[in-house]
């Protein structure tokens, strides 16, 4: 069965382009041009992924996101011209899985869709315990991190951080999400601590910590753990 994607956008040209491109990439596409229509469609024929614009004529995309999250965990990818970090963080904190700004490259969008689908299937199924990205292997059950086969000594907090990032591989995690998962901080006043720990972690696992390969910064938003074949 084909994977079904619901595209919500009020711009007919975007809908037209995305429908053509996604259909050509073997997805089944339904479209909605208002928030209400999107909510109705999402309930009637539950999609596997939702691509959501923030500026909709009848309601804000963030509201749509919130309402969806009240009953479904379907991956939501925000696709918007709004490029401020605040906006991104807000959307992610409201439950969106990813955020892409217009204009976007289609490769990027396809990659994000794949990541979202993979993550959704992991949430449903059994969690992967060994995450591999290039030369880096993180074994969650054995608390072991190796780089090119050599063990890397991490402190408990560093490991918690690495494990959280890796188990959300290729997804952006906001500062707030990481702080609350790893340290239990419920406010975002501790981003400096996070930065320091990310810095330490990079020194241990990255070849060039200044130009990191595994843990990349999403400016003003958070971090993303990148997996390589």
């Amino acid at each position: 069965m084909l994977t079904q994607i619901l595209v919500v956008d009020d711009e007919p040209q975007i809908l037209r382009a995305l429908k053509t491109i996604l259909t050509a990439n073997q997805f089944k596409v339904t479209t909605a041009s208002t928030g209400t229509e999107a909510l109705t469609l999402a309930a009637a024929q539950p999609p596997d992924v939702i691509i959501l614009d923030l500026s909709l004529p009848d309601m804000d995309g963030l509201m749509v996101c919130e309402e969806l999250r009240a009953w479904t965990q379907v991956p939501i990818i925000i696709l918007s011209v709004r490029d401020s970090e605040k906006e991104k963080v807000k959307a992610l904190d409201k439950g969106a899985d990813d955020y892409l700004t217009k204009p976007f490259g289609i490769e990027e969008l396809l990659a994000r869709i794949r990541v979202a689908l993979k993550h959704a299937s992991q949430v449903k199924g059994i969690q992967q315990t060994i995450i591999t990205s290039g030369a880096l292997v993180i074994d969650l059950s054995r608390h072991l991190v190796t780089l090119s086969g050599k063990e890397i000594k991490l402190t408990a907090t560093e490991f918690r951080l690495a494990a959280y990032l890796a188990s959300n591989a290729d997804r952006v995690l906001t500062h707030q999400a990481i702080l609350s998962y790893v340290w239990g901080f419920e406010d975002s006043d501790h981003t400096e601590y996070l930065r320091v720990f990310i810095g330490q972690l990079r020194k241990k696992i990255e070849n060039n910590p200044n130009s990191p390969k595994y843990i990349v910064t999403e400016p003003g938003v958070g971090y993303r753990f990148i997996t390589y074949e």
């Binding site: 970090e85 981003t191 400096e192 930065r195 810095g199 060039n208 200044n210 130009s211 910064t217 003003g220």
Partner: peptide, 30 residues
């Protein structure tokens, strides 16, 4: 400015990573 403690190196390398053309056309020394 939404200030927070940042590593300048990270910012510079981040920009260079994105600006492929610059890396291709010039010898960049940081």
């Amino acid at each position: 400015p939404q200030r927070s403690w940042n590593s300048m190196a990270e910012i510079v390398y981040g920009v260079l990573k994105r600006m492929i053309q610059i890396r291709q056309d010039y010898v960049v020394d940081v």
